[in-house]
């Protein structure tokens, strides 16, 4: 029995390693070829170079698209987290009539193809005669970011005892100051995590921005445009490799901050 358990544990471990390889190896070809001294993406590798990174960084269009993506991502992250915070509080703290239905509605964007979200907002903006701009991209991104923000913040709020807030009120603080002295510091890891993750969702999104950006260009839209030109591929690879690196760092930071909070709220008994 015990030996068997160990045997299937080894089998599963080998499987898990293969699975991780399946997840990561395809993506690793992007950074690999971004340092290859050839415009063709093919083996054998001809030599090491950083020229594609230099070229990419010298490109005004890249810088412009990057600036746009940063603006949109920051705005979408801020707005969706600020919307998610009170909503998550309401859904975890109060018995709200129809709360489950509202939560389901807010999570709807996870279950709708992005193209449908994009075209339906396009139709609405067109009907309301609102010109397409980076602001309309932010609106579109907020709809897909809010479910993520709410999920992250709700799990954080569920983790701490409601009577902490009551204790603060009981000790003489107002509701507003209780939020700043108790709720906010305790939810802070969740807020930071939600900001980082919603920023990633917005920063990486191509399709919604594609429909709502009008003449503006975000980084994914720029990359999409470059894919048509084979001679541009190496610089796109360099750009993609950089984006992947920064994404990884942000995601690890977000998850690490979130886990810090999780460990912090488990009391150490008998210390």
């Amino acid at each position: 029995m015990r030996a068997r358990g160990r045997a299937d544990g080894v089998g599963l471990f080998v499987y898990a390693i293969f699975y991780l390889a399946f997840l990561y190896v395809p993506v690793l070809f992007l950074p690999l070829f971004s340092f290859n001294n050839s415009t063709f993406i093919s083996f054998p590798l001809s030599g090491f170079t950083t020229q594609w990174y230099v070229q990419m960084w010298a490109d005004d269009e890249v810088q412009h698209a990057l600036a746009n993506s940063l603006k949109v991502g920051a705005a979408a992250a801020l707005v969706s987290t600020m919307l998610g915070l009170p909503a998550a509080k309401a859904l975890t703290r109060y018995r709200v009539p129809g709360g489950t239905v509202m939560l389901g509605f807010v999570n709807l964007p996870l279950f709708i193809p992005e193209i449908v979200l994009g075209i339906s907002l396009l139709i609405l903006l067109n009907t309301a005669a609102i010109p397409l701009s980076l602001i309309t991209v932010v609106i579109g991104h907020v709809t897909v970011c809010v479910p993520f923000a709410i999920t992250v913040l709700m799990s954080r709020m569920e983790g701490f005892d409601r009577s902490l807030e009551e204790a603060s009120l009981d000790l003489g603080e107002t509701g507003w100051m209780t939020f700043w002295r108790v709720t906010f510091p305790l939810v802070l890891p969740g807020i930071v995590s939600a900001l980082l993750l919603t920023f990633m969702v917005s920063f990486d999104d191509f399709l919604i921005a594609y429909f709502l950006a009008g003449t503006q260009v975000t980084l994914p839209i720029y990359i999409w445009g470059q894919l048509r030109f084979p001679y541009k591929l190496p610089t796109v690879l360099a750009l993609g490799a950089l984006i992947l690196l920064v994404s990884c760092i942000l995601v690890i930071a977000a998850e690490w901050i979130r886990s810090l909070g999780v460990r912090g709220r488990r009391p150490v008994v008998g210390a």
Partner: peptide, 24 residues
């Protein structure tokens, strides 16, 4: 209280999600 806190989010999501889907 709960509805007041949910209000802004619901308004935004109705305007940016439900209304577009309805129009679609």
């Amino acid at each position: 209280r709960g509805l007041a806190l949910l209000g802004p989010t619901m308004v935004i999501m109705v305007l940016a999600l439900a209304a577009p889907l309805g129009l679609l």
